[in-house]
Design a protein around this nucleic acid. Structure first.
Length: 105
DNA sequence: CAAGTGACGTAGA
DNA sequence: GTCTACGCCACTT
């Protein structure tokens, strides 16, 4: 996989640009890339990072619609929740408070 | 070239 | 509030 600009790389770059304490949804990332219906592809792109060791991509800042974590606890969902909380992101009944950490509160 | 897959999204019941 | 069904995209084999 050494392609230069695949859709995946675009996702990585965009996610990499998410400031701390900010959270985006798959649909938003896809929309920013020009493919509002590509939420699935975005999720898949991040899925590859879970197994990667050096990525520098704050994938934990990307959650499903509504701010809910779709990741299984064993796949890193647990880590995502902890990381977000460590960045000051507040949780609302198991969901991220998009109203305070969304793209533009 | 075709089919299958997956960390989604929305709508309806 | 819960669950089901369909549609969409990009990548792999």
């Amino acid at each position: 996989m050494g392609q230069g600009d695949s859709f995946f790389e675009q996702v990585y770059e965009l996610v990499r640009g998410i400031p701390e304490g900010r959270v985006l949804t798959y649909g938003q990332v896809a929309g920013l890339l020009g493919v509002p219906q590509g939420a699935r592809a975005v999720g898949w792109a991040l899925h590859g990072l879970t197994s990667k060791r050096e990525h520098r991509v704050p994938w934990h800042r990307v959650v499903a619609a509504g701010g809910c974590i779709s990741l299984p606890a064993g796949a890193g969902g647990r880590r995502q929740r902890e990381r977000l909380r460590a960045e000051g992101v507040g949780f609302k009944r198991g969901r991220v408070d998009l109203a305070r950490h969304g793209l533009e509160p």
